[in-house]
């Protein structure tokens, strides 16, 4: 339903051209939840902003396509994109503390975003109440009058989800929706999202740092590193048969996997490469402990192991076997 292929996005800065996304391929099948993992600065947000057409002024899409429901979003005018945003594609943001307007009541904001629908005020209000109760806000009629600061973080994130799903979009983009919440709330929000997704039949593009959440919620996982998609597969593939060294490292660093008491959390040594002056070979070569000569010279091609499971690594084939 959503298909990104060979997407290249660049930022023009004083330091030079930052190649923020390079040949990004991503597919969100209808009714599925796709998780995107990767460390900060790997291009997750740039990818989202390209989908909804809200890239910064100094960003430019060099090539590629983003096909959504049969048409290329990159070819659409800002007007056409605006008609899609909030109706067919919606978004939930990371920080529920700042994602709502502090000076408007929840009811005012929820009815305002329904401005496209030719229905009366009372009906809009009814729909808001229904939506709030669906995300589990108790006593929604009276809570509509409240302002964002009168809600807790978890409640606000539910309100944000209610607002995003109000128009029953085909695709929900969730940009680290649980990062700012504590672990208990995180689980609640995740289960709520999954329930809503199943009852509405929409797809979710779910961005997260948290591997546990990804494993719990998603059908497919996309691993990004330094502006590239390095591996893609089903949750089972990625967690049980990771093929790219970066994915393997990432899984090893997950605190949930540590079995023994340790003083130092495992990390991946090194830093993300400079995206202005790219290395000639594999983007991960500098930090990879299996790096060989060819990694420094050639950009690896996609190796497919199974249906839906592929990685971009020179050694991918040999590693999957071992």
């Amino acid at each position: 339903m959503l298909e990104i292929s060979r997407l290249n996005v660049e930022f023009t800065t004083e330091r030079g051209v930052i190649k923020a996304l390079r040949d990004v391929d991503l597919e969100v099948p209808r009714g599925s939840i796709v998780g995107v993992v990767g460390e900060s600065g790997c291009g997750k947000s740039t990818m989202i902003n390209s989908i909804i057409g809200l890239l910064a002024h100094n960003a430019a899409v060099r090539s590629g396509s983003i096909t959504f429901e049969g048409s290329d979003l990159l070819q659409k005018s800002q007007r056409e994109l605006r008609d899609i945003r909030g109706t067919r594609i919606s978004m939930v943001f990371q920080d529920p503390m700042t994602a709502l307007n502090p000076v408007l009541s929840i009811g005012a904001q929820m009815t305002d975003i329904q401005y496209r629908d030719p229905i009366g005020m009372a009906q809009k209000k009814q729909r808001s109440i229904r939506m709030l109760s669906r995300v589990g806000i108790p006593d929604p009629e009276t809570r509509l009058e409240n302002y964002p600061h009168q809600f807790s973080g978890g409640m606000r994130q539910r309100i944000a989800i209610a607002m995003a799903l109000q128009a029953e979009p085909a695709l929900l983009i969730a940009d680290e929706p649980t990062t700012a919440l504590d672990a208990t709330l995180e689980v609640q929000i995740i289960h709520r999202l999954k329930d809503l997704q199943q009852s509405m039949g929409c797809s979710i593009l779910f961005i997260s740092h948290h591997l546990g959440v990804i494993a719990e919620l998603c059908d497919f996982v996309v691993v990004m590193y330094g502006g590239e998609v390095v591996e893609r597969g089903t949750v089972r593939d990625i967690f049980h048969r990771p093929a790219h060294p970066y994915t393997i490292k990432l899984l090893e660093c997950d605190p949930a996997r540590i079995a023994e008491t340790t003083r130092a959390l495992p990390t991946i040594p090194g830093e993300i490469p400079d995206l202005v002056n790219l290395p000639p070979g594999c983007i991960f070569a500098d930090r990879c402990d299996r790096c060989i000569k060819v990694c420094r010279e050639q950009i690896p091609q996609t190796t497919e192991f199974a249906e839906h499971h592929w990685a971009r690594c020179h050694l991918a084939g040999s590693m999957a076997e071992t």
């Binding site: 809200l54 975003i113 995003a164």
Partner: peptide
């Protein structure tokens, strides 16, 4: 540049709204 403005834009709100 506040997040709620970005959120509104992601919801399809236009300039005047």
């Amino acid at each position: 540049d506040a997040e709620f403005i970005l959120a509104e834009r992601a919801m399809g709100a236009g300039f005047f709204r």
